[in-house]
């Protein structure tokens, strides 16, 4: 094990780590936004729009991120839509994640028992009051496990960013292996930084899941 090499690579990895996290979480934030809006459109079955959203969700859930990124990054510029690799990474992750989040939120909303809506109606609550006070909080709780799984899935998906020459962790590892052949050291650092990126989320996810499951509903 070449510790000297590891020390000298560290700053490069750190930089790549920061970039990966930044684009990754921005993409995830975008995914949440797209997902929530899409889920509402699907839940309320808004004409025309809900058809469009359905097509979008199916299209992006059934294709790999890598292919989506290639299309956005290499294909779209030919039609005059030119975006930087960072924006592309963020947008791609947001669109992919949005389709997953939409499904998750929608099934959470639909999981609320009809009797809940009826008993709120019998109390005189309006449709919007029922949605805000009864359906939404319960749907969020039901969805939380799947939402966390989505976040972890999306953070892992950031590993394909290097394909659109974004200087992320994978790019850095591949670059350094090519340059210096310190394969073991480079891969070790790669694994360590991914653990650093995902283990806290996984751990926190488990914690939130337990808290929400057994805390809010009291058990």
């Amino acid at each position: 094990m070449n510790t000297e090499a590891i020390v000298s690579y560290l700053p490069l990895y750190k930089e790549a780590f920061v970039l990966t996290i930044k684009i990754g979480w921005l993409g995830i934030a975008l995914a949440f936004a797209i997902g929530i809006v899409s889920a509402f459109i699907l839940y309320f079955n808004i004409p025309v729009l809900s058809k469009v959203i359905k097509a979008y969700v199916e299209l992006f859930r059934n294709t790999p991120l890598l292919v989506q990124l290639f299309f956005i990054y290499f294909g779209l510029p030919k039609m005059g839509i030119d975006i930087s690799s960072q924006v592309c990474g963020c947008l791609g992750l947001g669109l992919l994640g949005g389709s997953y989040m939409a499904e998750t939120f929608r099934s959470g909303l639909c999981a609320i028992a009809n009797t809940q809506i009826e008993s709120a109606t019998a109390l005189g609550m309006s449709k919007s009051q029922i949605f805000i006070h009864i359906i939404l909080p319960q749907a969020f709780t039901i969805s939380i496990t799947a939402l966390i799984a989505n976040v972890i899935f999306l953070l892992k998906e950031t590993s394909v960013f290097s394909a659109i020459s974004l200087m992320d962790l994978m790019f850095t590892a591949k670059d350094l292996i090519g340059l210096y052949y310190n394969t073991t050291e480079c891969l070790l650092l790669l694994v360590l930084f991914y653990i650093l990126m995902l283990l806290p989320v996984s751990f926190l996810g488990n914690l939130i899941e337990k808290k929400v499951r057994f805390g809010i509903f009291g058990d």
Binding site: K156, T158, S159, L187, Y194
Partner: peptide, 12 residues
Amino acid sequence: VRIMPQMVLLFI
């Protein structure tokens, strides 16, 4: 498997 991207596993 939950936290390691398949891409990283491929490289390893």
